[in-house]
Design a binder for these strands. Structure first.
Length: 588
RNA sequence: CGGGGCGUAGCGCAGCCUGGUAGCGCACCGGCUUUGGGUGCCGGGGGUCGCCGGUUCGAAUCCGGCCGCCCCGACCA
């Protein structure tokens, strides 16, 4: 029996002063979670019910596709992580510690090492494959900046799953099955969501998708084309689209020097020349440090090198795309490096220096679309630029798509929009990134040793809960999707304990519970205002109010939380369970 | 890691500049009152003023160091 008078549900009238995100404010105010430290959160009973409901949905969908549930330690020997190279590759985010024997240990931020090393010991033959494992286990990440309540924390439960296949075809099959399972998970949980192409990041591997729930507190920007991203959707980190056209003035035989005193920014230059920023080439000098060896035995690459990135003045670089294109980590060049190798900052250009040039694909596409047109670039001389510069003719370059898509660009002719969203899950094709260093191999039909081909698949239940709050709330509080609400129905008993309303409400509670609903009964002695306000804050999908007014007619009141729709005339006590069941069908 | 801000009761805040033994609202406890949208009145409990050190007759207040938390950026499976 869940009586509010017995439930630890510390609702607050005011949100914590430091809570910025709506979900942060509401989840604390509604008594679902409490903070212990930066990025460290405790789940109180009602909040944990939400979390568990999400977990139950995920578990069902994992089992539906044949994945087997396991549980592996969070505290792990560092040795495993050294073998995959991540011990050195991951800088601050990995918690490291020593045990009493002074052995290096880590707190796992994900479980590729653990899963793979076990599987390496167990699997011998192609006959043992394929299969897939999953768990709900805590992950520890020393986040540089935890934020937004439960959205980005240092410790959180994750459903992580791993697939083990004989070859890439098997992985693809598994991958598709997971995509379907994920779609079901997010549909069932009641979120607005979409699947986008993503960067593979520290996981390594080949292909990856992220599952994004659009919301104001989102940390990622997602590029979408078509209705709700139907025809294109990708994280801006990897998105690519056709830039909006821009006209370039005809170029002469050779570049012409123009005086541009004091115009060190694109904006100033555009104004000075009275030309659109998109017709100017922005110079972005960077230093590339080749990626460190992530696998034992990999040959360390060359020394850091300077590269001049050129892109349209109305575009920005995406560091991740740049790093991919250049094959290493990238930082902006220092002023000294720029002066030594290229020219005076503010007037940089590709002509007159020996620094290799990387031209953004959108700039090249613009050049082609303006046959015979020329750009303005820095002259590498103070207060001078060059006009009528033609890439290829006037300077050599390599080409890559390294710019950020902006709203209004097009994909297959369709304009894109950009929305903030929170990542609620992801899937990666790891290939042999972990099986090789950890020796997870099998003998194929020919008796030849092969590395297992892997995939990894994560879901953050806490983020699903918080994203739901972000997406579904109003002035009064949360309005949960019914699949993950802490309770299906809150029965509010008006009047003091022992009154007719309270007795009738208890009966309503029993009847609805017997009918299979999760019911919360507010049997407190408080005033009507307090109870109704708290109910709206907590946000159960359906509220049944038992007061003496309607009770006199043998009825109770009903309100659907989403949209605060009051059911005309309420519901008759006689046959209440059936009426509620019917009503339940149309609640989101 | 860079920039900014904040630590005083469970939550939200004042007091600090100008040093004199800590206060308000909500919540909580007791009594009465009220009973369909946080009712009103009376009485009450609760705080190492983040921590350490210094200055001073005296420090929440001034000075130094440290710790914690939040926001922006960098970063982020």
């Amino acid at each position: 029996m869940t009586r509010l008078s017995q439930l630890l549900l510390p609702t607050e009238r005011q949100p914590p002063a430091d809570a910025e995100a709506v979900s942060h404010q509401l989840m604390v105010r509604a008594g679902l979670v409490r903070q212990m430290g930066a990025g460290l959160w405790s789940w109180l009973p009602a909040g944990w019910r939400v979390h568990q409901k999400v977990v139950a949905i995920v578990r069902e969908e994992m089992e539906r596709i044949g994945a087997q549930e396991v549980l592996m330690p969070v505290l792990q020997p560092a040795e495993l992580w050294k073998r995959t190279g991540r011990y050195d590759a991951i800088q601050g985010e990995l918690f490291r510690l020593k045990d009493r024997k002074d052995a290096d240990m880590v707190l796992a931020m994900t479980h590729e090492e653990a899963m793979t090393s076990h599987v390496a010991q167990i699997v011998r033959s192609y006959r043992d494959l394929p299969f897939s494992l999953f768990q709900f286990q805590v992950k520890e990440r020393d986040e540089p900046r935890p934020r937004a309540g439960v959205l980005r924390t240092r410790e959180f439960v994750m459903k992580d799953a791993y697939t083990f296949d004989r070859d890439e075809a098997g992985l693809q099959e598994h991958y598709e099955r997971y995509r379907e399972a994920y779609a079901r998970v997010y549909d069932r949980s009641g979120l607005r969501w979409y699947e986008v192409e993503s960067d593979t990041g520290m996981m390594g591997g080949k292909r990856a998708h992220e599952y994004m729930a659009p919301c104001a507190a989102g940390e990622d920007d997602v590029v979408l084309a078509g209705p709700d991203g139907a025809s294109y959707s990708a994280n801006v980190e990897v998105a690519s689209a056709d830039a909006q056209p821009i006209a370039l003035p005809p170029a002469g035989e050779t570049p012409v020097t123009i005086e541009t005193p004091g115009t060190t920014t694109i904006a100033a230059l555009a104004e000075h020349l009275d030309r659109p920023a998109g017709s100017l080439l922005k110079a972005f000098p960077v230093v590339v440090t080749p990626a460190p060896a992530t696998v034992k035995g990999e040959v360390p690459a060359a020394k850091p090198r300077l590269v001049l990135v050129l892109l349209r003045g109305d575009h920005e670089v995406v560091e991740i795309k740049l790093e991919k294109a250049l094959g290493g980590t990238v930082r902006q060049a220092s002023e000294q490096e720029i002066r030594d190798r290229i020219g005076p900052p503010g007037f940089l250009g590709p002509i007159g220096s020996d620094v290799p040039v990387l031209l953004d694909a959108a700039a090249e596409a613009t050049t082609e679309a303006n046959d015979g047109g020329g750009w303005v670039v820095g002259a590498n001389v103070v207060d001078q630029h060059l006009d009528g510069v033609v890439p290829g003719r006037d300077f050599a370059y390599e080409i890559a798509d390294v710019r950020a898509v902006v709203a209004g660009d097009t994909v297959d002719g369709q304009p894109v929009t950009i929305e903030p969203a929170i990542e609620v899950g992801n899937i990666f094709q790891l290939m042999t990134r972990y099986s090789e260093p950890l020796g997870a191999t099998f003998l194929d039909e020919e008796g030849k040793e092969q590395p297992i081909v892997m995939g990894s698949y994560g879901i953050g239940p806490a983020r699903i809960a918080a994203a739901a709050v972000e997406q579904f709330h109003d002035e009064q509080g949360i309005s949960w999707p019914k699949a993950i609400a802490p309770f299906d129905i809150e029965v509010v008993a008006l009047g003091k304990q022992g009154t007719d309303e309270q007795l009738a409400a208890a009966k309503v509670y029993d009847e609805l519970t017997a009918a299979g609903f999760d019911v919360l009964l507010d049997d407190r002695n408080g005033g009507a205002g307090q109870k109704l306000t708290d109910a709206e804050l907590l946000g159960c999908p359906l509220r049944i109010t038992v007061g003496k007014r309607s009770l006199a007619e043998g009825r109770v009141e009903a309100q659907i939380r989403r949209g605060q729709e009051t059911i005309e005339g309420g519901l008759a006590l006689d046959g209440l369970a059936d009426a509620v069941r019917e009503l339940w069908e149309r609640i989101p």
